[in-house]
Nucleic acid binder design. Structure first.
Length: 291
DNA sequence: AAAGAATTCAACCGCTCCAAC
DNA sequence: CGTTGGAGCGGTTGAATTCTT
């Protein structure tokens, strides 16, 4: 049994000997880990765990920090732009989650991996094909991605229209003074804020560039307008799109999704069609409307 | 309102890589 | 050159939550 009353079914004899904890982290543990790293820095996870007085493995501490406590972790729904990037990068690199995550500031490999498994693989299942099959990849390339681009573009138009009506509206910002973000989850008893090292976000490895400032205000209910708020920032960045064999400004296909398609996706062949196509759109509409 | 099914996502596991010794 | 320990990665699990009937 752990402190939460849950059985530690996978605990080994050696774990019991050293009284190692498993399972969900408590607020108290989060607080200890956060403050320890704030004053001593990260790395050397096994000794960190020991010195911090945490009855956790170094691995567990590292994972908790990287996936949850790190100040620059971005939480909330995957935006349309991020979905597009994930699809593109996955088509290039496959299940190289950490590599993909490097191109999505604030997102963790675990989050992307979960997104892929829960969302993308679900649609492959609905299409009754494997995510790695040619049929599915073609479907993504020829249907989903162009569709996503259209959605992004349409939403950008809507967002800019509403922005012109209400210019003072802001959907995201970051407080650079204390290194905390609006949707950052810190232990509940952090009310006054843990003591953090000075030096801005560099201390915590925040990538430079506007995209890292695109923090949404909701942890789980990004509105479409909120998601699209990232568009204007992303247009200044370049991303690698394999179909084009090179880097292009995001704006290129935001302003002209068809040019994006025509540049790199010239073999616009639909392998399925008919009911299959209809099912895809229905599924995708549900998917997108969930955002 | 309750029960069961489906989904989500935090956390764990096993493995590989690499540097230090 | 072999061993050891730290770090990181991808796959998997299962509890919690949400949805459906």
């Amino acid at each position: 049994m752990d402190v939460n009353g849950r059985p530690c079914t996978s605990a080994t004899q050696s774990d019991e000997d050293t009284d190692l904890r498993r399972g969900p982290w408590t607020d108290e543990e989060d607080l200890i880990l956060f403050n320890y790293i704030a004053s001593h820095g990260e790395g050397r996870w096994n000794s960190l765990a020991r010195h911090a007085g945490l009855k956790r493995t170094g691995k567990s501490c590292r994972l908790r920090w990287l996936n949850y406590l790190r100040p620059d972790v971005r939480r909330g729904n995957i935006t349309l732009q991020e979905q597009l990037l994930i699809l593109e990068l996955h088509s290039r690199w496959g299940n190289r989650w950490s590599k993909i995550a490097q191109h999505l500031p604030g997102r963790t490999d675990n989050e992307i991996k979960n997104y892929w498994r829960t969302r993308v693989q679900k649609h492959a299942k609905q299409l009754q094909c494997d995510v790695n099959s040619k049929q599915f990849k073609d479907t993504m390339r020829d249907q989903w991605i162009p569709r996503l681009v259209e959605r992004i573009q349409a939403a950008a138009v809507t967002a800019s229209a509403s922005a012109s009506n209400n210019f003072t509206a802001t959907t995201h910002h970051i407080n650079h003074n204390n290194n905390t973000t609006i949707n950052q989850k810190v232990p509940n008893n952090f009310a006054a804020g843990p003591v953090l090292p000075t030096g801005g976000n560099h201390e915590f490895g925040v990538e430079q560039g506007n995209a890292s400032d695109n923090y949404s205000t909701g942890a789980s209910s990004d509105s479409l307008a909120t998601q699209v708020s990232a568009v204007s920032d992303l247009t200044t960045d370049s991303y690698y799109f394999p179909a084009n064999n090179g880097f292009h400004g995001y704006a290129d296909f935001l302003t002209s999704p068809t040019s994006y398609i025509n540049h790199g996706l010239d073999n616009n062949v639909w392998l399925g069609g008919g009911d299959l196509l209809e099912n895809l759109w229905n599924a995708e509409d549900i998917w997108l409307s969930e955002q």
